[in-house]
Design a protein around this nucleic acid. Structure first.
Lengths: 192, 192
DNA sequence: GTAAAAACTTGTACCGGGTCCACCTTTGTG
DNA sequence: CACAAAGGTGGACCCGGTACAAGTTTTTAC
């Protein structure tokens, strides 16, 4: 990795951590991009060359995490039934998000608008995951692919919504598992 | 209904229809709020007193439609099992959206950001629906309530995604029904 | 019918996110 | 060392959204 790349990564991380510090201290809306840029020692323009939006600085994945995510999808345990494999992937994703999840939950509670904008950036891994599902769906049934993707996403989101940051992270993993199990097993049944 | 209210409703509808005309002609991003306000014969400030955001002018419901929506939720067929009743409500909602759906789909294709912001405004009826589900969920199980809500929403969204505006509206209703049936019956089963 | 109160509209000024661009500095290459 | 490519910077600009004071219309009460 050349000097150039190293510097970029370092700058990325500086901006990210500076931003998270400011935001977790003062709240998302009370911190402007100018504040973040100034505190990180770069210009506003440069900030936007690293992050496509202000929200992205909260939700984007570190390049290292992106690599983990790709590894997760490349895991060759293709013999598992779709929904079980999907649960594994979701749990892996949960672990990726572990570190920032408490902060993100606090932000969600502050400003519900952030909830939806987080969907935008989560859609960053959307295409990958959709393609992953598609490969495991018979007949290239695109309706079913989309339905599986959206439903799994909904289950995951539900787990995030339901999790209390004061609870243990293990509990969050259980929630993810439960939500996916319920959603996968069918919600039309009166009890489960 | 007094003069004041009548005028307000009329203004609302003028702005809405003017906006939809402009936007469907030029695209969402190519029309500014100023354009809409000017073409509707009101000021920018007034526009924002009718619609909380630019997106809202596309997604908000006419007061009459809001009434229909409330009627839908008040429908006393409470004896149906939850998921069937939910399907009915979804189909009713689909009919409410019928008129603007083709336009909305075209806009979604233009700018995927709109997709997520539509979730924001759809969350306008979210609380109502969530409460409706909650009343039908035993033990006030809030995790399950949220899961049902999010999953139903995901199924509905999937139907919108999958529908081709060139297809008949009936076909859309079928998609809604299918998606809810599949999601409700359990996606973990290899085939359905 | 008229006067005061309440509701609505408007212009203006402002904030902050996001883009564009021309200019400069740094890094990689032969 | 020279040159090209990549990256950083400031400034101008657009647009969505808010706040507010001042003016206009509708309602209400007498």
């Amino acid at each position: 990795m050349g000097l150039r790349e190293r510097k970029k990564l370092e700058a990325w991380r500086t901006i990210r951590s500076t931003a998270l510090a400011l935001i977790s201290e003062r709240g998302f809306d009370a911190v402007s991009v100018e504040d973040i840029a100034a505190a990180s020692g770069v210009s506003r323009t440069t900030f936007f060359s690293y992050f496509p939006s202000k929200e992205a600085v909260v939700f984007d994945l570190d390049p290292l995490e992106v690599q983990h995510w790709r590894d997760l999808l490349a895991d060759p345990r293709a013999d598992l039934p779709l929904w079980e494999a999907l649960t594994d992937v979701s749990l892996g994703l949960a672990r990726l998000l572990a570190e920032r999840l408490p902060l993100q939950k606090r932000l969600f509670e502050q400003s519900p608008e952030l909830c939806t904008s987080s969907r935008n950036t989560c859609d960053a891994f959307g295409p990958d995951l959709k393609e992953w599902i598609s490969r495991r769906t018979p007949d290239g049934d695109s309706l079913r692919t989309t339905l599986v993707y959206n439903t799994a996403f909904a289950a995951f989101t539900t787990a995030i919504e339901a999790w209390d940051p004061d609870d243990s992270f293990e509990h969050f993993l259980e929630l993810v598992r439960d939500c996916l199990r319920w959603a996968g097993a069918g919600l039309a049944h009166p009890v489960s």
